[in-house]
Simulated scan of single mutants.
Amino acid sequence: MDSARIDGSSEATLRVRYRDYGIWWNVLLIVVILGSRFFGAASFASSFSSVVWVAGTLLFLVSGLVMALRTRRGLTLDADGITWHQVELFIPWSQVTEVDVDTNVKGSGKPNLIVRTAEPAEALEGRRGLARFVIRASTDQYGGPIAVKAHLLAVPADAVTAAADRLRQSAGDVRDTRRERAAGAADFWDTAGLAGLVASLAAIVIPALF
């Protein structure tokens, strides 16, 4: 599959892969850190805390891998709007005020592609868990609900901004149940992963206190 392509003629769609492999390593690193408490423990198989740890860690691992796969999908731009697949956030073009590359954003050493909106808080409506945190952090730090590192996009950021400018000409406020289901599924897995992480940490910390 191409890293970026335009499909169709009347309703062009640009799909841009995002080459952020760090999230894969972060998930595996956390799993290894969590597991170091139990590796080699003689009572691993029969300990209740070990069972809780296994369940929680597996849940976190699956959730993390699902997010990594979503992150790899990057961005999708079509006639209706732009979708950030890491958190399955869809923003119709009617709400987008600008798509630009900011080389002077605080807390970042590399340029970021930023999608700015008139009302950034609207991107948080109906979202929960980790997705809500990520969207809010992006807005606070970069000034837009969608912000990705430009050098990790599979195509030049200028090509993405040019496509956004073209597609915004047919802006519309679109409600798509498929996108809503995708966002709901993302929220579910992110919340499940957070619950798994909390359970794993509890299985490690609580027994150590007693």
Rank of each mutant, 00 (worst) to 15 (best):
A186K: 06
L167F: 12
R15N: 09
D100M: 04
L77P: 04
L201I: 12
F60H: 03
A186W: 03
S94E: 13
G74I: 09
D140A: 15
Q169L: 08
I82C: 12
G74H: 10
A182M: 02
A185D: 06
R5I: 13
H85K: 10
T139F: 09
Y18K: 08
V155I: 11
T76C: 13
F38L: 14
Y21D: 14
S50D: 09
D165R: 07
L152I: 07
V96A: 05
F48C: 03
P92K: 10
S50E: 05
A171I: 04
A192P: 01
E11I: 06
A162L: 05
F210D: 14
G172F: 02
L209I: 15
N112P: 01
V27G: 08
D165E: 03
D165K: 10
L14C: 01
I23L: 08
I206H: 05
R178E: 05
A118Q: 04
D187V: 04
A208V: 08
S47E: 08
R166V: 01
A118N: 00
L209D: 05
H151W: 12
V54Y: 12
R116C: 02
G64K: 10
L28N: 05
R181C: 00
R136V: 08
V205R: 11
A164D: 03
R166W: 00
R37M: 09
A183K: 02
T83E: 13
A183D: 00
L113E: 00
V160G: 00
A199Q: 04
A164H: 00
A202C: 07
R181H: 01
P145H: 15
D80A: 15
S9C: 08
N112Q: 10
I6N: 04
L69T: 01
G107W: 10
